[in-house]
Design a binder for these strands. Structure first.
Lengths: 325, 325
DNA sequence: GACGCCCGGGGAACCGGTTTCAGAGAGCGG
DNA sequence: CCGCTCTCTGAAACCGGTTCCCCGGGCGTC
């Protein structure tokens, strides 16, 4: 409730000086600074962020657009972003696009109007649309790359490569990949890396899909796997859970009949039967990195680079050597 | 970029009239309203929210404090809150308390300073602390009640009662309850309702815990169940997943040897082996209701009541009649 | 000793809306 | 035809910070 004018009066200085003492300490003398700070502290002064935003044009708010929160993949991401924002005394405005390009664009515009910048996680809009957003305001992409726009990505190629190597080393020669939603950037790149690695090893990759990344889609996929595959990779955790469920219903044993692995990790994977081998993505770190880089961009010190974060392979019981069928 | 002054000039009216035409349409004539709206539209006018907030004292921001986002319980809650906020052209400031009372209090203060009101989900602070927050600014509690503070609760008693009835009807006479974190409001009430219902039916309730609501705690609990229990209820989904895992490791069959059920639901429960009977909580609705009621409070039309939302019992394969041991 | 420079601080403008207050004009009754 | 009231509009104050511009004083230098 105390205003800057109150602080100035209490400290016996002008509003201008009080403002400088608090936000530009190097511009006033040691003595003045101490007086003003003491007055501010004793009055419990909290600067009004709206007033500050009005003159500086900086709101201290960061927009975060995620496709969904129902997928536990995004929880740690939000947490990481949250922590990074807090460090910088900023707040997070979170919105859910529901993986709809129109909604995503509308949210980006709406948030951009109030926030200093926007982080878009796994956006579904076209390259052109994203470039346009980036022209309007500082923007960081997560899990998507568009030209030289600033981005933070979970290295899909690197992860897919590790997963492929794991299965190839176990002796698999026919891998199936259940692909994710059409147009998903990480899906496309993961699939390409898998194809390259299997081809290089003289093995074969059978692709099924694209499918929505849901439990039900996984169940359906279980009954349409290529007959020759001895290992199957699900695009993401939900799809893989459904797959596992469908396989069990069909009486197929994992990993004896078929190895199963997922393209991202989930706490529940340690609890399924059997526990599922998966790529643990450094999602929390991605969220934090994105926010830090966005704040840099807002401060004018940011760069137009892509930060790559490598996933960790969690080997669990769902993958093993191919059975003798 | 266009300001209200630009709109006023283009429409040939004063700033005051332009402002009224857009925010208080009933105060100007039809003709003026049309002129101003046309001018605003053609200039792409977007009112500056900081400026508006400065005079009105309303930021259009709502604070949402959740203990964690890693627990999928909260994802639909945020989604519901998000949708309700969007309807009212408000934005959500989300923060994670990590179930720490000090952090929670700090966040409430920090958010309250910038937001019009705060929604606290399953807060861990003391009643006194929460009352104090409610005195500072509009506050809605979710999944917690403190005196007559406005709240939205998932009806723990009602849910626990349905769960107890389900097991009692199956013929169970000795139920075990693995209790959640000490001091959890929903845990306390769920336990009380279970106790009452079992007692009324002439059956017995054996309580174990309290335990942290984690997968690992569930595993540990599996080896310390009361010998006479034929059915066990886990406080929440993670605890129950761990329980299931621990029971399987110990070679106990579900539901033949022991029925298992959980106090909240999780998509993954449909995929476990066997699928777990659980209470499906109307979490999304709770989030939406909380935000709507908070906005009412901010508008001065809110009430100090408690909204109760009843859970739905999802009967799955993990519960059945008691075996003959 | 005078001049110029640099530094710290004060007054006032400003950001972009909302709201108060007063005045102009129209409509109506006496 | 006058005067009153009611409605709509405009000028200006205001919200609470930040920043521009200018002034005064201390110090260094010639």
């Amino acid at each position: 409730m105390a205003t800057l004018a109150d602080v100035a009066r209490a400290a016996g200085v002008s509003k201008a000086t009080a403002s400088r003492a608090l936000t530009r300490p190097e511009m006033v003398t040691e003595a003045t600074r101490a007086k003003v700070r003491a007055a501010a502290a004793s009055l419990g002064f909290q600067p009004n962020r709206s007033a500050r935003a009005l003159t500086t044009g900086r709101t201290g708010l960061i927009g975060l657009i995620v496709p969904t929160l129902a997928n536990p993949f995004f929880s740690p991401l939000v947490l990481g972003a949250q922590r990074a924002a807090e460090e910088a005394d900023a707040h997070l405005l979170i919105s859910v696009s529901e993986a709809d390009a129109d909604r995503e664009a509308a949210l980006a515009a709406r948030l951009g109007e109030q926030a200093d910048g926007v982080v878009m996680v796994a956006p579904v809009g076209t390259d052109a649309a994203l470039r346009e957003h980036a022209r309007q305001r500082p923007l960081i992409l997560v899990d998507r790359r568009v030209g030289r726009l600033p981005a933070v990505v979970l290295d899909a190629e690197e992860g897919a490569t590790r997963l492929a190597d794991h299965l190839l080393e176990l002796g698999h020669r026919d891998l199936a990949y259940i692909s994710g939603p059409p147009g998903s950037w990480s899906d496309t790149h993961r699939r390409a890396a898998l194809a390259e690695r299997t081809a290089a090893a003289g093995a074969r990759l059978h692709v099924r899909g694209p499918l929505p990344p849901t439990f039900d889609a996984g169940i359906a996929a279980a009954s349409r796997l290529p007959a020759e595959a001895t290992a199957v990779l699900g695009y993401n955790s939900y799809l893989t859970l459904g797959l596992l469920h469908g396989l069990r219903a069909a009486g197929r044993r994992v990993p004896d009949d078929l190895s199963v692995a997922a393209g991202d990790d989930l706490t529940a994977f340690a609890a399924t039967d059997p526990p599922v081998t998966a790529l643990a993505l450094p999602v929390e770190e991605a969220g934090a990195t994105a926010v830090r880089r966005l704040l840099d961009l807002c401060a004018g010190t940011g760069t137009r680079t892509t930060t790559r974060l490598a996933p960790r392979l969690e080997v669990r019981a769902s993958t093993g050597p191919p059975g003798d069928r």
